[in-house]
C-alpha cells in the first residue's frame, strides 16, 4: 500500500486534486481510499464515497488539538487501509495550524496551495510547504502568467527541492503529471515507527483541558508569555 499525505490551506483544492488522481488510477484498476482529518466538520468523506465510489472515512478532532489528534490516529488509519487491501491510501488533512505539518518521514508528502492567497502566502505557510516533496499549485486558471511565475518563485524560496506541479482542480489538467511521480514511490510497510517530519507544538496547559477564562490565576502548565520589550531593556 502506498500512502500519501495531502496537506494544504482550507479550500486550496486538496479534494479536487485527489479526486482527479483517483479517477485516473481507477481507469487502470488501481484502488484508492481516503481518510480525511479535519477540525469541526467536513463533507469530503461523503463526496469520495458518493462521487468516486471509493472507501472514505473522516476524523474530526473537535475539542482536541487537530495536530495532536491527527498524529495519534495514524496507526488506526493505516490499519483501516490495510484491511481494505487498497493500493493507495490518501490522508487528506485540513484544520491543522500553520505551525504544523502532517508530513511523515518516508511517506510521500503533497502540499496543495492555490494561486489566490497572494504572493506572501508561501512564506507564511511554514513546514507544511517547506517540508513537502511535491507542491501542487491550483487555481492558475484564475491568474495571469506573470502572477503564476511570481508565485512559483515565492514557493521556490521556501522549498527549493520539491517538484512543483500546476494543477487545474476544475478540469484536472495537471493530473497526469502528478501521477507520473507516483511511479517512483514505494509501498509503505508500516507506519508505527515512522516519525513526523516536523515536531508539533507543546500544549499541556489549563486551556488544553477546557479552561475558558482569561487571566493569570487560570493559567497553569506550559504557558508562554509575549515579550513586550527587547531583552536588553528587561531587568
Amino acid at each position: 500500500m502506498k500512502i500519501i499525505t495531502v496537506a494544504g490551506t482550507p479550500c486550496a483544492g486538496k479534494t479536487s486534486v485527489i479526486a482527479h488522481l483517483v479517477r485516473l488510477f481507477k481507469s487502470e484498476g488501481v484502488e484508492a481510499a481516503v481518510a480525511k482529518f479535519d477540525a469541526l466538520a467536513t463533507g469530503d468523506d461523503a463526496f469520495y464515497r458518493k462521487e468516486l465510489g471509493i472507501p472514505a472515512i473522516k476524523g474530526l478532532s473537535d475539542y482536541v488539538c487537530p495536530d495532536h489528534y491527527y498524529v495519534s490516529n495514524l496507526e488506526e488509519v493505516y490499519a483501516w487501509g490495510k484491511e481494505l487491501k487498497t493500493d493507495l491510501l490518501f490522508i487528506e488533512t485540513a484544520g491543522l495550524c500553520f505551525r504544523c505539518a502532517p508530513h511523515i518521514e518516508g511517506v510521500p508528502a503533497i502540499t496543495v496551495i492555490d494561486n489566490l492567497g497572494g504572493v506572501d502566502a508561501p512564506e507564511k505557510m511554514g513546514p507544511a510547504l517547506s517540508l513537502a516533496d511535491v507542491i501542487v499549485v491550483t487555481k492558475s486558471d484564475m491568474v495571469s502568467q506573470a502572477e503564476k511565475e511570481v508565485f512559483r518563485y515565492k514557493v521556490r524560496l521556501v522549498n527549493s527541492t520539491a517538484a512543483i506541479v500546476q494543477f487545474n482542480g476544475l478540469t484536472g489538467t495537471g493530473a497526469v503529471m502528478l501521477k507520473r511521480l507516483f511511479e517512483a514511490w514505494q509501498d509503505v510497510a508500516g507506519i508505527s515507527e515512522a516519525a513526523l517530519r516536523y515536531s508539533m507544538p507543546a500544549s499541556i496547559c489549563s486551556y488544553c483541558t477546557g479552561e475558558m477564562r482569561i487571566g493569570k490565576p487560570y493559567q497553569s502548565g506550559n504557558v508562554k508569555k509575549i515579550q513586550l520589550r527587547p531583552e536588553s531593556e528587561r531587568t
Binding site: 511565475e149 512559483r152 517538484a163 512543483i164 506541479v165 500546476q166 503529471m177 502528478l178 511521480l181
Partner: peptide, 9 residues
C-alpha cells in the same frame, strides 16, 4: 511532472 518553467500561457 512539471511544465511550469517551460510553458507560459
Amino acid at each position: 511532472w512539471s511544465s511550469g518553467g517551460i510553458v507560459a500561457q
